[in-house]
Write a protein that binds this DNA or RNA. Structure first.
Length: 560
RNA sequence: GGCGUCGUAGCCAAGUGGCUAAGGCAUCGGAUUGCAAAUCCGACAUCCCCGGUUCGAAUCCGGGCGACGCCUCCA
């Protein structure tokens, strides 16, 4: 590893918005990486679009750590802003209360999507001293000027202004907004805004006021990551004016590059599924309800859905699209269950290498391991190429497929069961899946249990499976099929295997459907004079504390 | 108007100069199963159009058509 002294993995390339090129990744300080991602303005609940950046940067950090870097990831929270003030007034709360509420919402959403790599969440209101100091430095150096209690950045003093978003000052002859008369140039932007009566404010050399939107990021990134740091991220919609203004402030202040790699994620669009392509999502257009979406779909599905596409692409978001992605995810869950059936071991408890460069698993001459090593190589090549998670996921599917094939061919659930050599190969395959999926933040924990949290459903399902096993034993396939088909409306699926029948699917509402199926089965049994089955249903339900009552209008069930 | 991005199978989506154009979903065959489900095997793309560069282009260049973003708050 000769080049490793300056770059742990010189094969890693990152696209840079500033240069519009992919370039090899070389951190400012060998072995260390600082990442700053623009977080939310917490005036309202988040929508799914707010998760694109956190999810991809969560993967980026995981991958960089895997590659051996020591990574610090910062996400700022904008908790002072016009919209927050308005919202607070509207609701009769303080700005801080509104912020706290939405920060809690944001954090819950991050946790649900498995975003847990963020090291610091600096808040604008907690860095007032740094912000004011930064503005003073710009004023002292002549890049900013005070005007009627406001302070503006003088874009005319910055010869490089517009370089990030590739626009010239001439092209920006807007009317300058409501404060145009206080500015020298309409493109000048506020570093400090004087407070109107009753607005939250902080003391400053220019009187009571609050920071403009862009300055907090310059001040906080400098404070935590330094004057030049490695990666600055955010949505593509932030390139102008937010990041353009950040780079102007920071580079005029420090006279050195602010950031080595500007990495911007693509935006989500709503899929109207009415033939028309939907527009951009935004809270001002009523987008929201991320929490409800997570409740319905689960965080890992959403994360997987987002990672299927390269982070710089636009993604058409719709719930059916998430459900389609989920079908792919299910095949991994099934493989994990299969692994447990064969070895008794839990995929989620496996120990896998956490650092890149572990010895290849292709030690012997097992063709499956050779193919798996190749898939791993391609996975890493994809991630090295500007964090191509979509290409990487394809290799995860490849590995899953190889593993299933191996289980089939070695008949690990039949004649080949218990073969130590085969199981060792299987372990290696599963550990490889674990090692790689870890860098994507996938399959870290088992997904929420089927059937929600209702213990009774599990017990009733055991009864259902026993009844069906009896019917199959007696070659009573009509009853066996009636049971399986009768469960279909509840979303529960039965799978017959050598070791017995397994069930999966369903949700909190499934229990009632299962009970209805049992009640119906009992009635048909009795109609067919099969009193043994009918009585077995009633008696075993009774053991579970469920009472059946035959009434004129039909049978009802109640929990004991 | 200015600055950008994108157009790959029914759908989603990698690949950006050179083997049979990844992978997922759906569909259709086959193995397996009492029947299913799952799993495996197999089938399924003249890469928006036209022109150019090249021995060779989905990939580079020019033109067209179409979709979208930013230029105002936005992840």
């Amino acid at each position: 590893m000769t080049a490793a002294s300056t770059a742990a993995h010189p094969s890693l390339q990152i696209y840079n918005t500033l240069t519009k090129k992919k370039t090899p990744f070389e951190p400012v300080l060998p072995g260390k990486v600082g990442i700053y991602l623009c977080g939310p303005t917490v005036y309202a609940e988040a929508h799914i679009g707010h998760m694109v950046g956190p999810v991809i940067f969560d993967c980026i950090k995981r991958y960089l750590v895997y590659c051996g870097y020591d990574v610090t990831w910062v996400v700022n929270i904008t908790d002072v802003d016009d919209k927050l003030i308005h919202k607070a007034n509207e609701r009769g709360l303080t700005m801080l209360e509104v912020a706290e509420e939405n920060i809690a919402d944001y954090n819950k959403n991050l946790a649900a999507l498995g975003v847990d790599q963020i090291d610091q969440f600096p808040r604008a209101t907690e860095c007032m001293g740094d912000i004011i100091e930064f503005i003073e430095s710009l004023v002292d150096q002549g890049y900013a000027y005070a005007s009627e209690g406001d302070v503006y950045f003088d874009v005319g003093k910055d010869g490089e202004y517009g370089k990030l978003s590739n626009r010239s000052l001439d092209a920006m002859q807007g009317e300058g907004g409501g404060t145009a008369d206080r500015k020298k140039n309409t493109a000048d932007f506020a570093l400090w805004k004087s407070a109107k009566p009753d607005e939250p404010s902080w003391d400053s050399p220019w009187g009571k006021g609050r920071p403009g939107w862009h300055i907090e990021c310059s001040a906080m990134s400098k404070k935590i990551l330094g004057e030049t740091f490695d990666i600055h991220g955010g949505g593509l919609d932030l390139v102008f004016p937010h990041h353009e203004n950040e780079i102007a402030q920071s580079e005029c202040c420090h006279h050195k590059p602010m950031v080595k790699y500007w990495a911007h994620n693509g935006l989500l669009r709503k899929d109207n599924s009415a033939g028309k392509i939907g527009g951009k999502m935004s809270r001002s257009a009523g987008a929201g309800g991320l929490h409800e979406l997570i409740d319905r779909q689960g965080g890992e599905r959403i994360r997987f859905f987002l990672l299927r596409t390269h982070y710089r692409s636009t993604v058409l978001f719709s719930e059916p699209a998430i459900e389609e992605a989920a079908k792919g995810l299910e095949s991994f869950y099934r493989l994990f269950k299969r692994y447990k059936r064969i070895t008794g071991a839990e995929f989620y408890s496996l120990t896998a290498p956490t650092k890149r460069g572990a010895p290849s698993i292709d030690q012997g001459n097992d063709p499956t391991l050779t193919a798996a090593a190749e898939a791993k190589k391609k996975f890493l090549a994809s991630m090295d190429d500007d964090f191509n998670t979509g290409g990487a996921i394809a290799e995860l599917f490849e590995l899953a497929s190889l593993t299933n094939k191996y289980c089939d061919e070695a008949d690990l659930e039949g004649k080949g069961a218990g073969d130590a050599a085969s199981n060792a190969v299987l372990d290696l395959l599963m550990e490889t899946i674990k090692e790689l999926s870890n860098t994507l933040g996938l399959f870290l924990q088992p997904p929420a249990a089927a059937g929600g949290s209702d213990e009774l459903l599990g017990q009733v399902m055991q009864l259902v499976i026993d009844l069906r096993a009896d019917a199959r034993q007696a070659k009573n396939f009509a009853t066996a099929d009636a049971i399986r088909d009768g469960l279909a409306p509840t979303g529960i699926v039965l799978e017959d295997r050598a070791g017995g029948t397994e069930w999966s699917g369903g949700n909190d509402g499934s229990l009632d459907g299962v009970m209805m199926m049992l009640i119906e089965l009992r009635q048909t049994s009795r109609a067919n004079k099969d009193f043994a089955t009918g009585d077995a249903i009633r008696d075993r339900l009774k053991d579970l504390g469920v009472v059946l009552e035959d009434r004129a209008g039909g049978t009802e069930w109640t929990r004991g």
